[in-house]
């Protein structure tokens, strides 16, 4: 059993129609075991009242759902325009040269994270990080833990780019 039945029941009750619970329950399953297993798909399908094949097709449509357990340290680097202009390609290439890449940690690219003022932006495990430089992100994937040189990406204010302009 991947999901907690009491919690599932409560989540189903939040929506006027049951099938809306598909994405919330898939998220819950991924939070609990790190990925979406066949068992999880079955449980979500039963709770939402839709065929398991349909839940499977939903899982493959959305890029954030994983069918396999990820490495403990996972860095996703934005490769869209503003981050590319800040050197995202070069950063990713350099990180992928590091020993342990693919086994101990992974470096993937993603599209714009709505944090372009913090280019190069990324997601480390489940938190937005940026601006990323090589030293900071290398430390992140090697040692994990607090983001170190990669400051957490709070928002920039309006009127003055409060934190947004914090780039050298």
């Amino acid at each position: 059993m991947v999901l907690d039945p009491a919690e599932t029941k409560e989540m189903v009750a939040r929506y006027p129609e049951r099938r809306s619970v598909v994405l919330p329950l898939l998220w819950r399953a991924q939070e609990r075991i790190g990925y979406i297993s066949d068992e999880a798909i079955g449980e979500v399908a039963a709770a939402a009242g839709v065929p398991a094949s349909e839940v499977s097709s939903v899982v493959t449509f959305y890029t954030m759902f994983r069918r396999e357990k990820p490495p403990a340290r996972r860095l996703q680097v934005c490769r869209s325009l503003s981050c590319a202009m800040a050197g995202a390609d070069e950063l990713v290439a350099a990180l992928r040269e590091m020993p342990g890449c693919g086994e101990k940690f992974s470096v993937e690219t993603v599209e714009c994270l709505a944090a372009c003022d913090r280019a190069i932006a990324g997601i480390y495990n489940e938190g937005l990080v940026g601006p990323l430089n090589l030293a900071g992100s290398a430390k992140l994937v090697r040692d994990g833990g607090a983001a170190g040189a990669a400051a957490p990406a709070g928002s920039s204010g309006a009127g003055a780019p409060l934190e947004g302009g914090g780039r050298p």
Partner: peptide, 10 residues
């Protein structure tokens, strides 16, 4: 954002 000195929301 991009090649400006103070990227951010205004």
């Amino acid at each position: 954002s991009g090649h400006v000195r103070r990227p951010g929301n205004y």
